[in-house]
Design a protein around this nucleic acid. Structure first.
Length: 457
DNA sequence: CTGGGCGGCG
């Protein structure tokens, strides 16, 4: 009594178990099905592959592909799209390209989703050229781009430092037969704001208002964030108020944005009242939001409560990430608790959290601030990854304690390597050299700085 | 597919 209808139902059952991350049960249901004569089909396998890619790993997803082949079920374009998406999810650009090529090799034609996913992955992992290449390939293979394609392209262009080109593309969308939707507007407005192109962003916001689309919560948060970034605090607060009036009073992103901005401005009292308001609105807190609260407590020196939030979020199953730990490391350093900060850093490392460069920079900065330059230099030499924050912290620290020669040496490394250091750090070194009688060195360094600036522009 | 959370400069 195996009819097509019951196989569909059975697939739905497998799918819902997969969606609930219950892969073991899904596999058990498949085994049971086989016993009563339901042979898994391409849909069953595709469901499994997507789930393994999402919840376990790309290799595990790929091994299901072998299983399906052995069972005599041939993969289709959705199979490969799932694998590409899996690689994208785990930020494995070369794997996603491999899957794409394997698909071509066995004669499956990629569709618009294949290209979209691949482009998204390549942009996200910092390979914009690769993404452009596949976009062109898609056009030349007569695969029609979708709105999703253009949104991904606009976002990718902005995120890879090509906001101007994104704006040009946005202006041509209509010629390509696409009308911008709210996602498109949000994407380009955000990209332009991040690039500091506020005038263009504002014009497009006006156009959005005049279009048939309405701004949504994402538009509001984007604009609010942009106001804070460009120093228009009062306007940012007004955007927040307008957003609340619009009824977006349970938007965790908005609260996160405003609380963090208020903390940065030192307006801790207002940050607290917005926190209370947020909790009163019954918003479900997520990890980023908890990190913001931890940040708030750290900034007011309330480390005890900060760590309390950490244990509460871990108890609630939200976990914690590199942001959580970096914020706490910084908080500990600012309180002078360097040993605790070091231990937390070690914990980060053992948990395999990436980007603890930020945390190391906090520690370095903290050591500089209290004048423990020996420890700071030892740490600096030990650090494998360094960025402009690293150099600026140390240069400032060295200047603060009159180690101008060493500061100048570091400054020269930055100029040579193209590391852009804050101009305040540059000034500190030059004027330090000058007032400590090293006039010739000061002049030479200034010349080097000017040359580097000319070469960069 | 779009928005939020960490570090240097007082």
């Amino acid at each position: 009594m195996t009819c097509r209808f019951s196989i569909c139902l059975w697939n739905v059952c497998v799918a819902s178990l997969c969606k609930a991350r219950n892969l073991e049960k899904a596999e058990a249901v498949i085994v049971d099905g086989i016993r009563i004569g339901y042979l898994p089909d391409v849909v069953t396998y595709n469901t499994l592959i997507a789930a393994y890619c999402r919840f376990v790993g790309v290799d595990e997803g790929y091994s299901v592909l072998h299983r399906m082949r052995e069972a005599g079920v041939e993969p289709d374009v959705i199979t490969y799209n799932s694998l590409i998406a899996g690689a994208a999810r785990h930020c494995l650009p070369s794997r996603s390209v491999d899957f794409f090529e394997e698909m071509l090799q066995i004669g499956i034609d990629p569709n618009v989703w294949s290209y979209n996913t691949l482009m998204h992955c390549l942009f996200k992992s910092g390979h914009p050229e690769g993404a452009y290449r596949f976009f062109l390939e898609m056009i030349s293979n007569n695969v029609q781009p979708s709105p999703f394609t253009y949104n991904t392209l606009l976002n990718g262009l902005c995120k890879s430092g090509n906001a101007k080109n994104a704006l040009r593309l946005f202006r041509r969308l209509e010629r390509f037969g696409f009308s911008a939707e709210v996602v498109t507007y949000n994407t380009i407005i955000n990209g332009l704001c991040k690039a500091g192109m506020y005038g263009a962003a504002k014009r497009i916001l006006t156009e959005l208002g005049e279009s048939s689309n309405s701004p949504n919560a994402i538009t509001y948060t984007t604009i609010m964030k942009c106001c804070f970034k460009s120093g228009k605090f009062r306007q940012g607060l007004e955007v927040f108020a307008a957003m609340m009036d619009k009824g977006y009073s349970s938007d965790v992103f908005a609260y996160c944005t405003i609380i963090s901005a208020l903390v940065k401005m030192g307006r801790i009292g207002e940050a607290h009242s917005h926190t209370d308001e947020m909790l009163k609105n019954g918003i479900g807190l997520d990890m980023a939001c908890c990190n913001t609260l931890i940040y708030m407590y750290c900034k007011e020196g309330n480390l005890r409560t900060a760590f309390q939030v950490l244990s509460e979020m871990e108890e609630a199953g939200l976990g914690s990430d590199e942001y959580t730990h970096s914020i706490l490391v910084d908080g500990l350093c600012r309180t002078g608790l360097f040993v605790d900060a070091q231990n937390l850093l070690k914990k980060m490392e053992s948990r395999g959290l990436n980007s603890n460069l930020v945390a190391y920079n906090s520690l370095l900065n903290g050591l500089c601030k209290v004048g423990n330059l020996d420890a700071a230099l030892a740490l600096f030499n030990k650090m494998e990854l360094k960025d402009s924050f690293t150099y600026a912290s140390l240069i400032h620290g060295l200047c603060k304690f009159s180690q101008f020669r060493l500061a100048s040496k570091l400054m020269r490394i930055c100029l040579r390597e193209g590391i852009s250091v804050l101009s305040s750090a540059q000034r500190a070194v030059v004027s330090g050299l000058r007032v400590s009688g090293l006039k010739r060195d000061a002049i030479k360094l200034r010349a080097a700085i000017r040359t580097a600036r000319l070469l960069r522009s």
